[in-house]
Write a protein that binds this DNA or RNA. Structure first.
Lengths: 218, 218
DNA sequence: GCGGGGGTCATCCAAATGGTTGATTCAGGC
DNA sequence: GCCTGAATCAACCATTTGGATGACCCCCGC
């Protein structure tokens, strides 16, 4: 079987160097290009395709300091916007919030790994993803399992949306206006959120939602 | 001049590999050991010292998934607890919150760099730090400058302390009990914090304090 | 030794938030 | 068709928070 041709997308030179070195040690894996953001990644994919050197797998970070972020880039790649038969995209990032994971999966990622994973785990994920299979980090899988096992504590989409606005410091009134609903409804949602999270005020809701990685704390 | 002997401390295998590769490309720099947390770092320092192969510079991450964190490790190293003449410690991390920077400087770090820095910047920092000079990332330097230029907006230590408790979701009463002060005092501090941050409620204070990296959003 | 800033506390009042109950609409599953 | 859960709204009241003012102590620098 021929070698797996990989495109690295990460804005940190240090991390790119690390992945290049690590993947270089894996037999059957070949890093053929690198990009520092989503735009560059799409450009690289197109370029390599016209050169007749297609990419078998994209290793993508989600957080990119500038330029197109990882989720958008994944969407565009999977939608075929690079002008190529879309290669699978394996997310490799530091954060594992519910929001991030869901966004990545919806964007069409075929895997989600964390950067602190041991090399062997990353190697397995790369091979799986390149073979068209799904590759989830144990931590990520565990979070999804937990949600399925305890659905009563799963926040609805609307509730997460409120929580995100809450975390920006908006008042109930401001949130109501922003979402075109009444303050009463905002309060109802908040009560539900509090009971699901087991807290009794908004700051605590933000704190535990951040800790449980339901929303971003950054 | 002989080569600079470096100890890498970072819990991410990927990042260690990246730094090893990157530093390996710098002439006059030599990675002689690695550690995944603070405890291991101290052990390595001691071991290398008894072997007569002292370390010239420690490259340290602040966030360590488990084991001793980077600030504590830096403190102990600089206090000579590794049983060696303390080598300079250069912090290399992803985050640049005020709290992190101050803690690192107080712990005795002689530099503070960010992981998304270009290799050349990292090389300069390594050389400076090994030579006993201070090496600050431009972003970090800018933040310190900003504080000096606009001292009216600098929060006092007590205020930051309150802010951190605030961010955990505690009520004024709970904060008062925790700090052994009255609720009235808590409210006074909060008013000062609000005016310094330019906000008018606690959640907004948390949001902007997190954004401005006065406290951690994690 | 005087001023200023940080930290502490109190009181009073207005505004925002939390908690409860109850009700309507709508979509989806059995 | 019925039930459930999500989302919407309202009215009420208790509690918490926010804002303003004034005061005391202590340390440090000029």
């Amino acid at each position: 079987m021929s070698s797996i041709r990989v495109l690295l997308v990460d804005d940190h030179p240090v991390v790119r160097a690390g992945l290049r070195a690590m993947l270089g040690d894996f037999p059957g894996v070949n890093v053929v290009a690198e990009a520092a953001d989503g735009d560059a990644a799409l450009a690289e994919l197109g370029k390599l395709h016209t050169l007749g050197e297609p990419v078998d797998l994209v290793l993508m970070d989600l957080q990119m300091g500038s330029g197109m972020d990882g989720v958008t880039a994944t969407q565009k790649i999977r939608a075929g916007e690079a002008g190529t038969p879309p290669p699978p995209v394996l997310i490799l990032t530091t954060y594992d919030t519910d929001a991030d994971i869901l966004a990545a999966v919806e964007a069409g990622a075929s895997g989600y790994m964390l950067k602190d994973a041991p090399p062997e785990q990353i190697r397995q994920a790369v091979l799986s993803a390149a073979a068209g299979q799904t590759a989830l980090a144990p931590e990520v899988a565990a979070r999804l399992m937990g949600q399925i096992r305890n659905p009563s504590q799963v926040l609805s989409g609307r509730e997460v949306q409120l929580l995100e606005l809450l975390a920006t410091g908006m008042s109930n009134r401001a949130i109501a206006k922003q979402l075109f609903i009444s303050e009463a409804t905002v309060k109802t949602h908040l009560v539900h959120i509090y009971s699901k999270l087991g807290v009794d005020n908004r700051t605590a809701a933000i704190a535990t939602a951040t800790q449980r990685r339901i929303i971003r704390g950054h």
